[in-house]
Amino acid sequence: MTLSFIQNMGGGFMIIFLLFGILYAILWVYCLVDILRSEFKDPNMKIIWIVILLFAQGIGPLVYLAMGKSTKTTNYS
């Protein structure tokens, strides 16, 4: 009943946007936790990545996933 009401109100797009919003929030939290738990070559990079995540909301997590790996230290123990 509720789902058909939402679809009649044009809610198909609303459900899609809600799902993308939830996926984006999960990605953002994953990147933030990964930044906080990681060691970086330069100690200031942790702060820089957090600032990028906070102020570049749309593309911040994507930029971190694409470029953040190269700024981390590798600990093989």
Results as ranks from 00 to 15, higher is better:
24 Y>C: 02
41 K>W: 02
47 I>A: 09
37 R>K: 14
10 G>Q: 05
24 Y>A: 04
60 G>A: 02
49 W>K: 00
39 E>G: 05
40 F>Q: 01
9 M>H: 10
64 Y>D: 06
59 I>S: 13
36 L>P: 00
50 I>V: 14
47 I>L: 06
15 I>N: 03
54 L>T: 15
22 I>A: 15
40 F>W: 00
65 L>T: 02
64 Y>V: 04
12 G>K: 11
32 L>N: 04
13 F>S: 14
48 I>D: 02
25 A>C: 09
73 T>V: 15
20 F>S: 06
14 M>D: 07
44 N>V: 06
21 G>K: 00
20 F>I: 12
30 Y>V: 11
71 T>N: 04
51 V>H: 00
7 Q>F: 08
46 K>A: 09
28 W>T: 13
18 L>D: 08
8 N>S: 14
28 W>E: 15
44 N>E: 15
34 D>Q: 12
5 F>T: 08
58 G>M: 09
54 L>A: 14
52 I>G: 01
62 L>D: 05
40 F>R: 00
18 L>F: 12
35 I>M: 01
25 A>P: 01
63 V>T: 07
48 I>E: 04
74 T>D: 08
66 A>K: 09
24 Y>F: 13
63 V>Q: 07
19 L>T: 10
24 Y>T: 03
28 W>D: 10
45 M>E: 07
50 I>A: 05
32 L>P: 02
50 I>L: 15
18 L>R: 08
71 T>S: 06
44 N>F: 07
23 L>P: 01
54 L>I: 13
74 T>M: 03
7 Q>L: 12
17 F>T: 15
41 K>F: 04
23 L>I: 10
53 L>P: 00
12 G>F: 08
40 F>V: 13
10 G>Y: 05
23 L>A: 14
55 F>L: 12
66 A>H: 08
52 I>T: 08
19 L>C: 08
26 I>S: 07
46 K>I: 10
61 P>I: 04
62 L>I: 15
70 S>R: 12
41 K>R: 11
31 C>R: 02
27 L>Y: 07
12 G>A: 14
67 M>V: 11
32 L>M: 09
33 V>Q: 06
31 C>H: 03
57 Q>S: 01
70 S>W: 04
71 T>Y: 11
28 W>K: 07
38 S>I: 06
29 V>H: 09
31 C>T: 09
21 G>S: 02
36 L>S: 08
35 I>L: 01
52 I>H: 01
71 T>E: 05
38 S>T: 13
74 T>N: 11
27 L>I: 13
65 L>G: 04
16 I>M: 13
24 Y>V: 04
70 S>P: 01
70 S>A: 15
7 Q>S: 09
67 M>C: 13
72 K>C: 07
22 I>S: 11
28 W>V: 10
26 I>Q: 08
20 F>P: 00
25 A>R: 10
30 Y>Q: 14
56 A>R: 00
6 I>F: 09
12 G>M: 12
34 D>S: 14
37 R>Y: 03
57 Q>T: 10
43 P>M: 04
40 F>C: 06
28 W>N: 15
22 I>G: 11
23 L>M: 13
54 L>D: 03
51 V>Y: 00
47 I>Q: 10
8 N>G: 11
43 P>R: 01
50 I>T: 15
66 A>P: 00
47 I>F: 07
17 F>N: 02
44 N>P: 02
39 E>T: 11
20 F>R: 05
72 K>N: 05
8 N>T: 12
14 M>C: 09
30 Y>M: 11
42 D>T: 10
